[in-house]
């Protein structure tokens, strides 16, 4: 019974994570702005939002919303005209002077805290200088929304992929380490059960590697605009998947030759050590698009908030357990196959 408990526990954990990550709404945030300058003295600025609705109900009201356009020390209040679930329209009197020719929008909302959009309005004609500050900034209100996943300008709703893509690589690394240790043990003892373990683990690990590549590719298409980009992390991922494909082909091509376990073990040890070294060296000194690497902010620093954490850690454990379960099934298949051959 206890043997089944952790398996179903892992699956339950994963189901919970999947449910949570897809049902938790995203913190609202601005994605675009459009400025209607047809009236030279009163520009209409339309901000479009994504994520949790700004207001609910049909008769929307603007109470509690305050829009301030800022440019360094300059701050200009705008008059809020209408607010819809994912749209806010306000009227702005264009300034004659500005420190720099663009304005960032800061919107105080009654429920979702303060939401910013950089360079929301460009003011090409303004003379350089600081205009008269024409508004008082109200008290910042913290967000009172129920649990939300954070808003990231380029990532948007795809942030939920964090529960799939990243833990899949973790699971792959965990299972490949298992394979490596099994190969080492096989080299030491010559016991065929370790070879079977290394075999089964490399199969499962490769599965997770391919899943990691696919989920990553889909994510890259959305956030970076291409299915594949020249990035050290991606080089490492490709190399890892190819190396273990090579390992699988070595086992398949040489059939049931009794030297295969030994050769496979030697290659596994050789490749794993090289991979660890290469994957540690290569991404180190090169700018990566991945979060947390040089040149881009990490999920850890400000955007892995408590809501994401409460899903991410169970996801890591859940995928790890599922991977281990798949591995034990694969191992059982290999053993049965061998028994049938020996009959």
């Amino acid at each position: 019974m206890s043997g089944k408990l952790w398996k179903w526990g892992g699956v339950a954990l994963l189901l919970m994570v999947v449910w949570d990550s897809f049902t938790t709404p995203m913190q609202p945030g601005w994605v675009a702005s459009e400025v209607d300058k047809s009236d030279a003295n009163a520009w209409l600025v339309e901000l479009s939002a994504a994520g949790h609705p700004l207001v609910d109900g049909v008769n929307d009201n603007t109470a509690g919303f305050q829009v301030i356009f800022k440019s360094e020390s300059a701050a200009l209040c705008a008059e809020v005209i209408s607010v819809e679930a994912h749209k806010l329209v306000c009227r702005l009197t264009p300034p004659d002077t500005l420190p720099r020719p663009s304005l960032d929008a800061f919107v105080m909302t009654p429920g979702a805290g303060s939401l910013m959009l950089r360079n929301a309005v460009s003011v090409a004609g303004a003379v350089k200088g600081v205009p008269h500050k024409n508004c008082e900034i109200g008290q910042m209100q913290p967000s009172t929304l129920p649990a939300t996943v954070p808003f990231q300008p380029n990532i948007l709703e795809t942030i939920r992929n964090l529960m799939f893509h990243v833990p899949m690589w973790f699971a792959m690394f965990f299972i490949m380490s298992l394979s490596f240790v099994s190969s080492l043990l096989y080299m030491r003892t010559g016991d065929i059960k370790y070879d079977q373990r290394a075999d089964a683990a490399s199969r499962t690990g490769l599965l997770f590697g391919v899943l990691g590549l696919i989920t990553g590719s889909v994510w890259a298409r959305f956030t970076w605009g291409a299915w594949w980009v020249a990035d050290p992390q991606l080089n490492g991922a490709l190399v890892t998947v190819l190396v273990y494909t090579g390992y699988r082909i070595l086992r398949a091509a040489t059939g049931d030759d009794d030297r295969v376990p030994r050769l496979a073990a030697a290659y596994n040890v050789f490749a794993f050590i090289l991979l660890v070294v290469l994957l540690m060296i290569l991404p180190k000194y090169n700018v990566s698009l991945h979060p947390g690497k040089d040149g881009s902010p990490g999920f850890n620093t400000y955007d892995l908030d408590n809501t994401l954490r409460s899903m991410f850690y169970p996801a890591v454990i859940g995928w790890g357990m599922l991977g281990y379960w798949i591995y034990t099934l694969g191992l059982r298949m290999i053993r049965v196959h061998r028994q049938l051959l020996n009959r």
Binding site: G246, Y247, L250, A253, T254, V260, L263, Y267
Partner: peptide, 15 residues
């Protein structure tokens, strides 16, 4: 192995 140089390419090129 009896699989010859093709296997060397498969094993070596990724690395």
């Amino acid at each position: 192995t009896r699989a010859g140089p093709a296997i060397a390419a498969v094993l070596g090129l990724p690395l």
